[in-house]
Design a protein around this nucleic acid. Structure first.
Lengths: 282, 282
DNA sequence: CGTTAATTTGAGTGGGTTCAATTATAGTGG
DNA sequence: CCACTATAATTGAACCCACTCAAATTAACG
């Protein structure tokens, strides 16, 4: 069924990475795929360097990146900028944001992009009618949050070199998952300045870090592209662990299993809080 | 109708802050409130210092903090820790996380807590049957994300003193919104160590920053409590702006209005990408 | 081919860390 | 109720990672 879904997702010549990404995690029926294709059928084109949405604006529908790269960012009054997420094909952003009164951040196109805009009512309808899509959308929201958290951890607690390496591992893994970075080389349309605003560093320092990583042969930098000679080595250098990306496929059967377990684990869970077992917070 | 809702939320002697928080943003009918009260009817008690959930565990239902304070955190292998969110009464956390296979972070109780656990199926049902609750839940998810983002911005781009002050403004505003911090003083069960792990600083430096803020009479520190003599001054010092908390009440009428606007704004929006108007990303 | 943006390099500086040791505070059991 | 213990807060000095400033070189793009 999954193979079939991907085939359908490719129906228009260009793969629909939104469908492809979701199909990686959730078993989608033909109807599910059709619904997703229909929902993302009307898309807009956004030029590189322009904003898809700007801080303070009344939110439009949630953007789904069908092709190209974008980023979510915030600008501070002192002129500095903080990049909050790096959006690759298939990624959604701010699901349901159209219920808010103003955008809490901007979304910028790093390259020319094709973007579908989903109104929250359309999302609601999709999720209500197609249980697999419901699952897939929430999975996507949760993983996006985990990525954001991982970034926060890195900015707050990882040294600059590991932090940059970690970010590269993150992006590479995500690109690979949707089938864009097949070998160890991938296109990364980020300037050092942008990388700096992602990692919470100055651009000069990012430059120093990159040259150091290059010297240690952990990465190779080409023209707006990067290759990783030995991913395992970069992973161990940065301490990267992909668990938070939740890449294992979620079948309907797994979900059944979760339901069966639910009562037993809940009992166990409740017991846990009556006796002092388990690692505590402090 | 709102006053009525709050009354109901207080039905059991102790206010249900989950209901109260949601009622602040969304117009809840009596039925909505009853459903929320029922859903959070069975709760567990968690001792201070213990984990409500631990990284890597199979997720249980999403926790809703009914009383007490908790935090979401991640521990790194080198022993350092990063606190990702500070949870106050009424806050949910990781809505739908029970669809994941493993928790990407831990949740620790900072004080004794009373916590309701909502299975994702219960959430799905609530959202499907009660449109206002659907709105309220999504509003809550989006604001939580905005808070996380704001933290990331601060850790990456704000100097230590402003960052700490900013965080205090955030927590104070949220406590005030649910009616816990009525005057400028509030209980803040955080050690300097924990504050450091939130701000991405060392505890010694947090101490230095706090004494500096105290010296400038921007805050007063009591025993596990803080008071803010002049909130406006602290706000302007830290550059705090509460927009991202989306505290303005969302009425059903506002949502209607959003729908009416939708077509017009969409046209405007589409036009925008054909001519180079508006601030760009670079 | 000219102009602008991005990268590169170096020197000096500073914000924040680390290490180490002391004092205060809170919780605990006698 | 108090001594005892563990945890948290406090202080100071030395250090270092990353920043700033400034200027040269290279690459991108019309």
């Amino acid at each position: 069924m999954i193979a079939r879904s991907l085939e359908l997702a490719n129906a228009w010549g260009m793969p629909n990475y939104f469908v492809r990404k979701m199909a990686l995690r959730v078993a989608l029926s033909d109807d599910d795929v059709k619904a997703l294709l229909f929902a993302t059928g009307t898309a807009i084109r956004v030029e590189a360097g322009k904003d898809l949405a700007s801080e303070g604006d009344r939110p439009q529908g949630s953007p789904i990146i069908l092709s190209g790269f974008a980023c979510k960012y915030r600008s501070l009054r002192d002129g500095s900028r903080s990049i909050l997420a790096y959006l690759i094909p298939g990624d959604g952003c701010d699901m349901h944001s159209s219920i808010l009164q103003s955008m809490p951040h901007s979304i910028g196109a790093l390259t020319d992009c094709v973007v579908a805009l989903l109104d929250y009512r359309k999302i609601k309808e999709l999720a209500a009618c197609y249980p697999n899509i419901y699952l897939g959308l929430w999975w996507s929201v949760l993983v996006d949050e985990a990525i954001l958290q991982e970034l926060l951890v890195g900015v707050g607690r990882r040294p600059a070199d590991k932090q940059v390496a970690y970010f590269l591992c993150d992006v590479f893994t995500r690109l690979q998952a949707i089938g864009i970075a097949r070998e160890a080389a991938f296109k990364l349309p980020l300037t050092q300045s942008e990388l700096a605003d992602t990692a919470g560093l100055s651009k000069m320092h990012v430059h120093r870090v990159l040259t150091e990583l290059r010297k240690q042969n952990l990465i190779n930098v080409h023209h707006k592209g990067i290759s990783i000679p030995d991913f395992a080595r970069l992973k161990s250098f940065s301490g990267f662990c992909a668990n938070y990306l939740q890449l294992k496929h979620l079948s309907a059967k797994d979900m059944e299993e979760t339901q069966d377990l639910s009562d037993a684990t809940r009992r166990e869970f409740e017991k846990r809080f009556q006796s002092p077992i388990g690692t505590g917070f402090r």
